[in-house]
Every structure is written in C-alpha cells, then in structure tokens.
Nucleic acid binder design. Structure first.
Length: 135
DNA sequence: GCCAACGTTGGC
DNA sequence: GCCAACGTTGGC
C-alpha cells in the first residue's frame, strides 16, 4: 500500500465538502507530475488531505476507492481522476508549521516542492503525521 | 500584498 | 532546441 498527500483550497473544495458527498472524484489536476502520481494510486491507498491557502494544515485521511480514469470534466485525454472517500478526520489537524519543525518530515515534498498538488508520502512520514495529530 | 518557485508559451 | 516573458500557486 502506498501513501499520498493531496492539496486543496478549502474555500473552493475542502474536507467538509468531501464528507458531505461521501465519495468524490479528485478532478482538476492539470500538472503532469501530479497526474503521474494519480496514475500510480491503487485502490486502498491512503491520502493525507491538506488545506492550502489560509489554513495550511493536514485535516484528514481519505482512501482511494477507484483507480485513475479519464477526467470527465475535460475532453483533453491527458488528464485523469481518482475516486476517494473520507476515511478519518484527524483528531487535531497538523499544521505546516509543525511539519516544518519536525526533523523526520524535512524531506517531504510538501516542504521541498510547495507547488505540487499531488505527491507521494513515505510510510514513516505518514505515521509521524498521524502521531502528531493525536497530541 | 509580495515574492519565490516553477510550469507554459511563443519567438527566434 | 533555447530562453525570455508571462501566468499560477502558495507560503509568508
């Protein structure tokens, strides 16, 4: 199983929106690197759900329930989506600031490549963020 | 509101 | 094929 992180502007589409819908497709990705990561996602993979902009924190965990297929919101066949469901809200969201202050998380693409919207996360990093969310 | 990072576009 | 110009993202 693999681990991922996706970013979204909560004012446009946030964790609450996904929860209201129960399941949704992750559409709108228009960047090759992010697209390639979507293509690598497997059913059952877990996805950290990050709010960018004003919030800047990881708020929940989603699960991939359908692997990549052509993005129905465009005729351009270069782009794909996956379907995800909300799995678990973090007890306490984990702010970017805390991630930056945590030694083990220094190599996260979230820090190193701040514009990337879909990125892989190491299991150790995933577990560490869950740990940070409990206290 | 500013700016760094980085992707895309278009002229040559 | 290179690179300058420009647009967008996202942190500060």
């Amino acid at each position: 199983m693999n681990y991922w992180l996706v970013k979204t502007e909560p004012e446009t589409y946030g964790w609450d929106d996904l929860n209201k819908l129960g399941q949704d497709m992750w559409d709108g990705v228009r960047n090759y690197q992010a697209r390639n990561h979507l293509n690598e996602m497997k059913q059952g993979d877990l996805v950290l759900f990050y709010h960018s902009g004003k919030a800047r924190e990881v708020v929940g965990i989603a699960e991939v329930v359908r692997e990549s297929y052509p993005d129905p919101t465009t005729d351009d066949n270069r782009w794909v989506v996956v379907d995800i469901i909300p799995k678990e809200a973090l007890k306490k969201s984990v702010p970017l600031k805390l991630i930056k202050e945590t030694d083990m998380l220094q190599n996260m693409k979230l820090i190193k490549q701040s514009r990337l919207s879909v990125m892989p996360v190491e299991k150790e990093e995933f577990d560490k963020i869950l740990e940070l969310s409990t206290h």
